[in-house]
Amino acid sequence: MDYRIKLEIFEGPLDLLLYLIRKNEIDIYDIPISLITEQYISYIDAMKSLNLDLAGEYLVLAATLLHIKSRMLLPVHETEGGEEEDDPRAELVRQLLEYRTFKEAALEMERMKLLDRDFFTRKDTGDDRADAGERPVREIGVFELVEAFQRVIAGMGDMHIMEMERNDMSVSQRISEMLDLLREKKTLTFEELLGMPRERRQLVYTFLALLELMKMRVVRAFQRAPYEAIRVCVAAEVDVGGDAQE
């Protein structure tokens, strides 16, 4: 995994807002909206001028801040029950506190002992990933998969029909099963994945599950050479970091 160098770049708009509140030593329950809005917007401008890719979420929060600010300028109406109207900041405060809770939880988890950093366990040292990585492989697209699937379905033709009990199979269940299987076996051919006994219903569910996983890019399908079996494996490690820009 790559080391990531982090300057004063924030995990998101809420993170930036929390930072400003801390920096100004402001009571989170009584945020001076116009001050914070001003600072928030000047940060965004600064980030823009540094040519940083600014995620749309930052602008959404800027709009929210301005909206709250405008509401704060309106006179407060007393309702009939004598209760004050909702503080326009309440929802934002709730969001900030919630985010802060999890940010702190994340920091605490960071301090916990972590596998492969603070302690280690035995593992099989056979480098399975290298195996797939060394040889040139060809990525398989959806259309090729559909073709392969049709071949399998066609091949079913003369098999005797076997009625299976209808069970509560679902695509999400197949997804978890498939992932478990792939983690255990590392790579499976398309045929193996569809499994035996071939039952139409199961085939369809399995295929849908495979498509879903490929869409999420959790698994990849590839071929070592033309006409070889199509193989499926869990996608190679990618940097977990770069979100926000996705």
């Binding site: 995990e11 809420l14 979420e57 979100d243 926000a244 820009q245």
Partner: peptide, 8 residues
């Protein structure tokens, strides 16, 4: 909760 896209 996080205020950002978390797909990746």
């Amino acid at each position: 909760v996080r205020g950002v896209d978390v797909s990746a």
